[in-house]
């Protein structure tokens, strides 16, 4: 008796779509990363792992990794921490919670390009509100602080255009923009904690807020935290539009803000070096893949309570 082929109709469409829009492009990128292909050329020659070798030896790419990891390791802990803190504070509020929720979530919804322009003004070395405010503080006790005194004597930092400050300034804006998103995820996580657990904790003698947090809130937010951390990592690795808006050419002062996504764009699109662009993309995918695997492992191991 012939086996029914109906199942093909059930899985077929999804499988086909996944191949066409996900797997095949990845394979093509993987293939291109082994060549020196440029868009418009009729042919390309196979160069082996030369593109990858460049990524891991040239100083430009060293800067790329440096900028990316600085950004990621500032933005992820801060957005997660601030997101959790804001969620806990808002959750403890009765009446104005919704108002704060909206305020903190606004940057997430705003168009980042527009926000970038505003921040560019704010951080402008001479007419920007940041340095203008800092100058107000000159002559007060704040001058005891060496960094401040130096700023008063000469000038305050150029922020976005100083290679020592640029990546941190961009990270700051990234935090400002991103923590509202994590806050909303944490708020959802908080509402799913059964109130009776807090009653039980109180009966068991957990008297301080910290005790309750350690005994109930933090462990029960475990699954949320794994998700929030993973998504924050991926979002931070993907940072692009802000860098493109601030530094359309070259990735910031001395390439100090030359993050991966921008590098892919610059090499692959601006300079039409498809091979190297594809190679960076593959490395990027590898990072995201590793993060996802870690997340799956954590979810299955520790935070799955039933």
């Amino acid at each position: 008796m012939p086996q029914s082929r109906v199942y093909l109709w059930f899985i077929g469409p999804a499988l086909l779509l996944m191949c066409v829009i996900l797997l095949i492009p990845i394979l093509i990128a993987g293939g291109l990363s082994l060549t020196d292909y440029s868009l418009g050329n009729t042919g390309a020659s196979f160069v082996g792992l030369e593109n990858y070798e460049r990524i891991f030896t040239r100083s430009t790419y060293e800067k790329m990794f440096g900028a990316t990891f600085r950004y990621v390791f500032v933005v992820v802990p801060l957005t997660v921490g601030l997101g959790l803190g804001a969620a806990l504070l808002i959750d403890s509020l009765g009446r104005f919670g919704d108002l704060y929720k909206t305020i903190y979530f606004l940057p997430v919804m705003a168009a980042l390009i527009a926000m970038a322009i505003v921040w560019e003004f704010a951080f402008h070395p001479t007419i920007g509100i940041v340095n203008a405010t800092l100058e107000r503080g000159c002559g007060t006790v704040l001058e005891r602080w060496d960094w401040y005194a130096q700023g008063c004597e000469r000038t305050f930092p150029l922020w976005l255009n100083d290679r020592d400050y640029a990546i941190w300034t961009v990270s700051f804006i990234g935090v400002w923009q991103g923590f509202g998103f994590n806050m909303v995820l944490y708020l959802a996580g908080l509402t799913s904690i059964p109130p009776s657990l807090y009653d039980a904790a109180e009966m068991d003698g957990a008297k301080s807020g910290w005790d309750r947090f350690r005994l109930v809130t933090w462990p029960l937010l475990g699954p949320t935290t794994v998700f929030v951390v993973t998504i924050s990592f991926i979002r931070s690795f993907q940072v692009f539009d802000m860098v493109e808006a601030f530094y359309p050419q070259g990735g910031g002062p001395s390439k100090s803000v030359y993050v991966m996504m921008f590098a892919i764009y610059e090499k692959g699109i601006q300079q039409n070096l498809m091979g190297i662009g594809a190679a960076i993309t593959v490395v990027f995918l590898a990072f995201v893949m590793i993060l996802t695997l870690i997340q799956r492992w954590l979810v299955e191991r520790r935070t799955h309570y039933v």
Partner: peptide, 11 residues
């Protein structure tokens, strides 16, 4: 107290 839902700490 013993709660109706038991309120055991799941973790």
């Amino acid at each position: 107290m013993v709660f109706q839902s038991y309120a055991l700490y799941p973790h």
